[in-house]
Design a protein around this nucleic acid. Structure first.
Length: 424
RNA sequence: GGACAGGUGGCCGAGUGGUUGAAGGCACCGGUCUCGAAAACCGGCAUACCGGCAACGGUAUCGUGAGUUCGAAUCUCACCCUGUCCGCCA
């Protein structure tokens, strides 16, 4: 959520940000409406509070008179009349307030100055690590997986539906190995606290990180309970300190967790639907950081390096992409994507998104810190990164490490954990 | 799921209808004292919003939401959460 003050004091900045996202046509009218509602709201508040102050005066006088044994019926009638007036004014104010909140919760974050303007065609490949393998004679991962019995797509579809994967044998073991590899790396080498979090969360939590109210249709919901399946562990982890005030010595805070992730992928039918590329449930290790506002950009670079380290340990060629404003997520101010090369499908696959949310989530979730004893609390800045998403990593491993004999050599870092040097 | 008990400021804890934003204590900050520190003593110490250049003024907040009342931390109802016991269960 954006600061109310932007609506009041710097609409130009807001409009410029939406222009860079190429969304001014969508958000321009909403911003205009918010500006006028904000004005209306403040006038209403002033009026209501004047009346309340008046009622408080009268009411206290009633108390005094009663205590003195005097009659107060006239004052009581007066207070009642004021009370009715307040009820009316407040009803109006509530309508204004609710609409304004709805608008403010629906406006995306402001991209940082160094984020290129425009849609995804303006994304910038910053660097490439490793050498992508030539695509000739490399089978796509779904062929390899089926042949080696690593996963069972038809039966996944039978028990759940298309886009739900059953891993089997060495494939299932590989999932568990990836979890171990990533969590061990982040906790022992990079100082993250390991968490194990619920995958079902409530509405307030989903609102805190920005999934609600705008993206309800992307999520699986448990209607009866008013609960939702998480699309990423970012949601429960970032919300851990919702409505709390941290000490300055607790920042930066670094937490990580494995979790399954659930996405309806509504509206993406037909896109990358084969194999493991786009599924409704997948596994991921997620990294989350909180920091002081002035540290955000440095923390993002650090976070990016932690996500990259996983790919380097796995020996998978990848590239780092700085997303243009129009491709940057709703809550994010700046995002780097990590894309791994899968020679079997001949594509760069997004396996991590590393984002700085500035105070957008901190404000929504009311996560603050006190810079120094006695000082006013400020919103923390939040960051997160996938570190990393499993299915596309598995796809990349099956394709990049394919051997002429049909087996798949495992990256050294996985061999130790897996107990064998290859699949098949 | 059933029966009780309970949810008050960073923490502990008073407070059952009228200057109670809320006693007291701890923690924290500033000061006195001290060579220094501790102790002791003095003072300060919530958050958000509205108005104001500011000083400051106002409003709201005692789990959440409704209600009763001139007036609610205090009374009523619903819900949420925590604890204990019972039942069920991986």
């Amino acid at each position: 959520m954006l600061d109310h003050r932007l609506i009041r004091d710097d609409v130009a900045l807001l409009r410029d940000a939406m222009t860079r996202r190429e969304k001014l046509d969508v958000y321009g009218p909403l911003i205009d409406e918010a500006v006028s509602l904000d004005r209306e709201r403040r006038q209403s508040i002033t009026r209501v509070e004047e009346r309340k102050a008046e009622r408080n005066r009268v009411t206290q006088e009633v108390g005094k008179r009663k205590k003195a044994g005097e009659d107060a019926t006239e004052l009581q009638a007066q207070a009642r009349a004021i009370g009715d007036e307040i009820a009316n004014l407040e009803a109006q104010l509530t309508v204004t307030q609710e609409r304004l909140d709805e608008l403010l919760l629906g406006i995306p974050n402001l991209p940082l100055a160094d984020v290129p303007a425009g849609d995804e065609s303006h994304n910038v490949v910053l660097r490439t690590w490793g050498t992508p393998r030539a695509a000739e004679s490399v089978a796509p991962h779904w062929d390899v997986g089926e042949r080696l019995g690593l996963f069972d797509l038809p039966r996944g579809a039978k028990v759940s539906g298309s886009g739900f994967i059953v891993y089997r044998g060495a494939g299932a073991r590989l999932v568990r190995n990836l979890m171990t590899l990533m969590l061990d790396l982040h906790t022992t080498e990079f100082g993250y606290e390991e968490l194990w979090v619920p995958v079902v969360v409530n509405r307030a939590t989903m609102t805190g990180t920005g999934q609600l109210p705008k993206f309800a249709e992307d999520m699986y919901a448990l209607e009866e309970e008013g609960l939702f399946l998480i699309p990423t562990a970012e949601v429960p982890i970032t919300n851990l300190y919702r409505d709390e005030i941290l000490g300055a010595d607790e920042l930066p805070k670094a937490m990580c967790a494995y979790s399954p992730c659930f996405r309806r992928e509504a509206g993406s039918a037909g896109k990358d639907t084969r194999g493991l590329l786009r599924v409704h449930e997948f596994d991921k290790v997620e990294l989350v950081r909180y920091c002081a506002p002035e540290d955000g950009e440095a923390q993002l670079e650090l976070l990016l390096s932690h996500a990259e380290a996983v790919l380097q340990r796995l020996g998978l060629p990848y590239r780092v992409v700085l997303l243009a404003a129009g491709d940057t997520g709703f809550a994010s101010a700046k995002t780097y994507d990590l894309e791994v090369f899968a020679p079997g499908v001949g594509k760069w696959l997004e396996v991590s998104s590393c984002s700085l949310f500035t105070e957008f989530q901190g404000r929504r979730a009311n996560i603050r810190f006190r810079p120094a004893p006695g000082e006013k609390p400020r919103f923390v800045h939040t960051l997160n990164a996938s570190g990393l998403a499993f299915p596309r990593i598995i796809a990349a491993i099956l394709e990049h490490y394919q051997q002429p004999d049909g087996s798949v050599l495992l990256p050294e870092a996985l061999q130790r954990i897996h107990g064998k040097d290859r699949l098949g």
